[in-house]
């Protein structure tokens, strides 16, 4: 069964200029996303993990052109997203939506839940008046809220409920792709499962694709079909989720997996404790970005950036010494 590609990202780059000096010239760049490529199939969930500041949100936002990419190509159903003008981009947003991490900050506090969820229907002239009200009511029910909740304001809801409001808004236009940027990170453990299950149910019902961004590997592994691991603006490994867990290739993935706290005191793991901190994306290390913390580092790693290569069965890795000879 050949899967159909929905989204294709090729060599995406986003450099944020750093301004300084009297005339506020550009004195450097934050290499937030530096040559990232991946695809998302129809109905698939691709997980994107990595440490704070490695460029996950920037990648997600660039795809929707909420920020303009510096370079690279993004194809959505074969259409070049980077070439679209404002109007064409706006209509494409019906197909691509985003859910943000912070359920508190991402909803307008002065709007009722009804107008928040109904707004996209109006903007895209899909439904108005009583028809809109009906659509909103059914959307709210779909995400486990009540139709009466339409008249309430965001502050009257708990964190998990607010995240549901954000999800209802995101699915209002029947999108094909939703970028989920840390959708459960701010939620209590007992509420996280509710939201994860909801996302899975909606995917099944509507054949949605997700780009699921999170730093919690337990969560990403659970929801994803494939997982991409980012480090300092680059994808260092990409593989089907069980392969990534059972046979991690990149030394960074290995360390990351060994560090995940497992909620079971009888599981004793051999932890790989990485030395030092993540370097700054303003001045990333030469060669392989990971070499400053890598336990297997050799001379070539400081000098040459490793190629991101396919090592079989959809498993990709960027390391000079992997797969092991």
């Amino acid at each position: 069964m050949a899967a159909e590609t929905l989204l294709e990202v090729n060599n995406l780059k986003k450099y944020f200029p750093i301004k300084g000096g009297v005339f506020s010239q550009t004195i450097g760049y934050v290499y937030a996303v530096d040559d990232v490529s991946f695809t998302v199939d129809k109905g698939e969930t691709l997980g994107l993990v990595g440490e704070s500041g490695c460029g996950k949100s920037t990648t997600g936002r660039s795809i929707l052109r909420l920020i303009e990419p510096t370079d690279g190509k993004i194809y959505f159903e074969g259409q070049d997203v980077t070439a679209l003008d404002k109007n064409a981009m706006r209509s494409l947003r019906r197909e691509m939506q985003i859910i943000f991490q912070d359920p508190y900050a991402s909803l307008n506090p002065r709007m009722t839940v009804g107008s928040i969820v109904g707004e996209p229907l109006e903007i895209h002239k899909i439904a108005r008046g009583s028809e809109k009200t009906e659509r909103v009511a059914s959307l709210l029910q779909k995400v486990g809220l009540r139709a009466e909740d339409m008249r309430k304001y965001p502050h009257e809801f708990s964190g998990g409920q607010r995240q549901r409001i954000g999800i209802a808004r995101a699915i209002a236009l029947n999108p094909k792709l939703i970028v989920c940027d840390e959708p459960v990170s701010a939620l209590d453990v007992s509420i996280q499962a509710q939201v994860i299950n909801l996302l899975e149910d909606l995917q099944e019902e509507f054949g949605l694709s997700y780009l699921f961004i999170a730093h919690n590997l337990n969560v990403v592994e659970h929801i994803s079909d494939r997982v991409a691991v980012m480090y300092l603006g680059q994808i260092v490994e990409l593989a089907p989720d069980t392969d990534l867990y059972n046979d991690p290739q990149h030394p960074y993935t290995e360390a990351l997996l060994s560090a995940v706290p497992i909620p079971d005191p009888t599981v004793t793991k051999k932890r790989i404790i990485l030395e030092g901190d993540v370097p700054s994306p303003i001045d990333p290390p030469s060669g392989c970005h990971f070499h400053t913390r890598c336990m297997y580092k050799e001379k070539i790693c400081e000098e040459e950036a490793p190629e991101f290569k396919h090592i079989g069965s959809g498993h990709w890795v960027a390391c000079h010494f992997r797969p092991k000879a």
Partner: peptide, 23 residues
């Protein structure tokens, strides 16, 4: 209700058990 990377990876994924409602 916790997803577990070690369990998920070793077999068929199961739906998470959720605690309904809120505090």
């Amino acid at each position: 209700s916790l997803p577990r990377v070690d369990k998920d990876a070793s077999g068929a994924k199961q739906r998470l058990q959720e605690i309904p409602g809120i505090v």
